[in-house]
Amino acid sequence: MTIPTQLSLHGFIATTPELSKPDSKDARFFARIGVEHWRKEADGAFTKLEPTFHSLVMYGESAKRAYARFRVGDQFVASGYVTEYESTWNEQTVMREQFVARHIGHDTTWTRYSVDRAPANQPEPPSDQMTVASEPPRVVGL
């Protein structure tokens, strides 16, 4: 059996997120997002290029949770798909695209957070077996 995969996107929230129909099952999260780009040089170094900006949407209960948790500047990883739609601009119809996120989370490479888990049905390990994970190393120069 093959591994099920979806398109993924890494970026940052560029505009204040909006939530339409917050009391409905059809709630819609919308934000403009930025995606950073890099060019690898002949000497192996990387040059940061200008970011590109795109639309990201989510629907339903996921939209409500994303609206409560994401702010401008937050780095995220999302999975979903790209869709095209028609939009009118200066009396002309143009095709636009947006990323429809099915799942979204903060990027753990750049975000500090704590996890509040529901109580598990298993005992806590003895304190002498507990270890503390150190913060992952930061990549410099990218």
Rank of each mutant, 00 (worst) to 15 (best):
R117Y: 15
P136F: 06
R71N: 08
H54G: 13
R28M: 01
F30C: 09
K64F: 00
F70A: 00
H54I: 15
S20P: 02
S24G: 01
E97H: 12
P126Y: 00
M58Q: 07
H103T: 13
A118P: 10
T111E: 05
Q122G: 07
D116R: 13
S87N: 15
R69H: 14
R28Y: 04
T131R: 15
V82E: 06
A78K: 02
E124K: 09
V115R: 14
P137R: 01
S62C: 08
Y67P: 01
A63N: 10
T2F: 12
Y67E: 02
K25G: 05
N121P: 12
T108I: 15
A133D: 15
P126E: 03
P4N: 11
Q98T: 10
P137A: 04
A78M: 04
P123F: 07
V132P: 13
V140M: 10
E18K: 06
P126M: 05
Q6A: 14
A68T: 08
M58F: 08
V140L: 03
N90S: 14
S127W: 13
T108L: 15
E36L: 04
H103Y: 14
H103R: 08
T109H: 11
T52V: 10
H103V: 10
G141Y: 09
V72N: 05
P4A: 13
R71S: 07
S55G: 03
F12S: 03
T52N: 04
K48G: 00
E91P: 01
K64P: 03
L19C: 07
T111R: 12
L56C: 10
V100D: 02
V100S: 00
W110D: 11
A101Y: 05
G44K: 06
V72P: 00
T52Y: 01
L9A: 01
E135H: 12
D107G: 04
Q6K: 14
R138L: 14
Y67L: 00
H54D: 14
R28K: 06
M1T: 10
R39E: 06
G73Y: 01
H10F: 11
I13M: 01
T47Q: 09
Q98L: 13
M130V: 13
F46G: 03
F30D: 12
F29M: 03
V82P: 05
T88K: 10
H103K: 15
T47M: 13
A42F: 11
P22W: 01
T108S: 14
T52F: 07
R28G: 08
P17W: 04
S24D: 03
Q98E: 15
D26Y: 12
T15K: 02
Y85E: 12
